[in-house]
C-alpha cells in the first residue's frame, strides 16, 4: 500500500484520469492506454502540489445506495418542477427560503450534498455557515418545511455521513 502511495499519491484519481483519457480518445489501443497513464501520472503529481485534505471513501454499498436514491429523486423532482412550471400561476407562489442544521462537517460530504441538492430541480443550495453548521436553501415548493428537512437529513445526510465520516 505504501509503495503504491509513494509512486501514485492518488490511485483513484489516477484511474479516473486514465478512464477520462480513454473516453476522450474513444479507443482502448495499447498506445492510448500508455499515453493516458502518462498523462494521469502527471495529473496526480500536479494534485500533490494542491495538497487537498485527505478524503476517505467508505462503505461502497452506501455509495451505490445513495446513487440509486439520487437517480430516482432527480426524475421525481424533474416531474414535480415540470408540473409547477406548466401548471396554474398559483402553484408558482409557494417558493421560499428555509434553513436547517446539518450534523455533517466533512467538506467532501458537504460538496456532494451541494451537488445533489442543486442537481435535483426544486431545491437550491444557497449558502452554508460552517461556524453554526446551518444550511440555507431555496425551495420551489415550500409547503411543509419540516418535510423537506426530513427528506434531506434522512434520505441523504445519513448515507453521506456513513460514506465520508
Amino acid at each position: 500500500m505504501s509503495l503504491i502511495r509513494r509512486v501514485l499519491p492518488f490511485p483513484l484519481m489516477f484511474l479516473a484520469l486514465v478512464v477520462m483519457w480513454l473516453l476522450l480518445k474513444q479507443s482502448v489501443a495499447p498506445g492510448t492506454v500508455l499515453f493516458g497513464a502518462l498523462v494521469a501520472f502527471g495529473g496526480t503529481w500536479a494534485m500533490v502540489a494542491l495538497d487537498p485534505p485527505p478524503a476517505r471513501l467508505r462503505r461502497p454499498r452506501a455509495v451505490l445506495q445513495l446513487a440509486g436514491r439520487v437517480f430516482i429523486d432527480v426524475f421525481r423532482s424533474n416531474l414535480a418542477v415540470g408540473r409547477i412550471i406548466l401548471g396554474e400561476a398559483e402553484r408558482r407562489t409557494h417558493a421560499g427560503f428555509m434553513s436547517l442544521r446539518l450534523e455533517m462537517t466533512d467538506r467532501y460530504g458537504l460538496a456532494v450534498l451541494a451537488i445533489i441538492l442543486t442537481c435535483t430541480p426544486g431545491t437550491q443550495w444557497v449558502s452554508y455557515d460552517p461556524s453554526r453548521g446551518t444550511l440555507l436553501l431555496h425551495v420551489l415548493d415550500l409547503v411543509d418545511e419540516l418535510e423537506w428537512a426530513e427528506l434531506i437529513k434522512l434520505r441523504y445526510e445519513v448515507l453521506l455521513r456513513e460514506i465520508f465520516e
Binding site: 417558493a95 427560503f97 442537481c119 430541480p121 431555496h138
Partner: peptide
C-alpha cells in the same frame, strides 16, 4: 430565486 431552479431540468 425561483428561476434558478429552471435550468437544472435541462441540465439533468
Amino acid at each position: 430565486y425561483s428561476r434558478v431552479h429552471a435550468p437544472s431540468l435541462g441540465a439533468t
